[in-house]
Amino acid sequence: MAAETGTPTTLTLKSNDDELFSVAESAAILSVTIRNMVEDGCAGGVIPLDNVDGKTLASVITYMNGISAIPADEEKKKSYRDKFLSDKDFETLADMVLAANYLNMSCLMDAVSAKIAQVMEKKSVGWVRRKFGIENDYTPEEEAAVKEEHKWTFEGVETDDDN
């Protein structure tokens, strides 16, 4: 890691659509992937992040800066994470899970996974199939049987009108 020189070290990250971002090293190393690169001395120039697009990377960097500015206070960190994710739509959340996975950021991963689960909680089976692109491989009879067996779990499900 860079020696302490008094001025904070800045890293340059490059998204897969060639956008460049400057970020303080102290915030960027929340990503284990980036930290490993820094420790291996690969951070001299630009760090290419081939699996993350500019829009998602901008969001992740906002998160890195925001969360690293909060001192060790789990309550405050949690409330920051909740606020940060509150306005994100489902596709953005999915992008962020993939980015958090690639960047190896477990705290972001946990928060986004929990947020996705919260969005899914009251959704219908049809909504889940559409959003995750899952093919229904049940025959109509099989599907009716498995639904009948767990009939009580279909109470209180949101109406299926989301595109």
């Binding site: 899970v97 991963m109 996974s113 929990a114 996705i116 689960a117 899914m120 909680e121 009251k122 959704k123 089976v125 889940v128 199939r129 899952i134 093919e135 229904n136 491989d137 049940y138 599907e143 498995v146 639904k147 767990h150 009580w152 779990t153 279909f154 499900v157």
Partner: peptide, 20 residues
């Protein structure tokens, strides 16, 4: 990882999503 965070009632419902 996501599914493990769902309530048990929702998980049981999502058995109907697909055989997988």
């Amino acid at each position: 990882r996501i599914l493990l965070l769902l309530p048990i009632k929702s998980l049981t419902r999502f058995k109907s999503v697909s055989k997988e």
